Simulated assay, not measured.
Amino acid sequence: MLRALEESGAGTTQVVVCSTCRHTAEAREDGEGLRGGARLAAALREVKAAEEAFAGVEVQDMPCLFACKRFCTIHIRAPGKVGYVLGDFSADAEAARAILTYAAAHAESEEGVVRYAHWPDGVKGHFITRTPPEGYLCT
């Protein structure tokens, strides 16, 4: 059920996309039969490939992050840093750029905490939860 990640991504900030998320609250798939999560994962990879600023962020996908009421859900994480689950995104390049911009700031931060003043508008209002790194609690 679990699969080990390749060592190349170890230590980097990762955006894990729920590949089976709904397209919208009303529709599981878009007009071409693709799930919103799969569409968002593709948009994240396209934006990442086009912009050098996102080189330090890995995009990964897995089926179901169990946040089904919050479609197009992602998890931003890195070893030893606070992680975040965000949802309710559109599956497009604009959302992907906002997610990757936040993830790049997360990668540059010491503990995974990004000051609100540095959040891109596209992630504001999308946070669901934060997760402390193993062995730590947020204060």
Score class of each variant (00 low, 15 high):
Thr13Ser: 12
Gly9Tyr: 09
Arg45Val: 09
Leu137Ile: 13
Thr73Asn: 09
Ala41Met: 09
Ser109Trp: 02
Thr13Tyr: 00
Thr131Gly: 09
His106Leu: 04
Glu29Thr: 12
Leu34Tyr: 14
Ala49His: 02
Pro63Phe: 06
Ser90Thr: 14
Val85Asp: 03
Gln60Lys: 15
Cys21Arg: 02
Lys81Asn: 09
Thr131Asp: 07
Ile74Ala: 10
Arg22Cys: 08
Ile76Ser: 11
Ala95Trp: 01
Gly83Ser: 14
Cys68Tyr: 01
Glu110Pro: 03
Gln60Glu: 15
Arg28Asn: 06
Thr24Ala: 05
Val59Asn: 04
Ser19His: 06
Cys64Pro: 05
Glu26Ser: 12
Arg22Lys: 11
Val113Met: 13
Pro79Gly: 12
Ile76Glu: 07
Val59Gly: 05
Glu94Asn: 02
Val59Asp: 05
Phe66Asp: 14
Leu137Met: 10
Asp30Thr: 03
Val47Glu: 05
Ile74Thr: 13
Ala104Gly: 06
Gln14Ile: 13
Ala53Arg: 15
Glu58Arg: 14
Gly80Trp: 05
Ala53Tyr: 09
Glu111Cys: 04
Leu44Gln: 09
Pro133Cys: 08
Gly112Asp: 07
Val82Tyr: 08
Asp61Ser: 14
Ala27Phe: 14
Pro79Phe: 01
Arg97Ala: 13
Trp119Thr: 00
Pro133Arg: 00
Arg35Pro: 05
Gly37Ala: 07
Gly37Leu: 05
Val17Glu: 02
Tyr102Ile: 02
Thr73Leu: 00
His126Ser: 11
Tyr136Met: 14
Glu58Ala: 11
Lys124Ala: 07
Arg97Glu: 14
Leu40Asp: 06
Tyr102Phe: 15
Leu44Tyr: 01
Leu34Asn: 14
Gly36His: 03
Ala117Cys: 01
Ala42Tyr: 02
Arg115Trp: 06
Phe66Ile: 13
Glu26Gly: 04
Glu26Val: 13
Val123Ser: 10
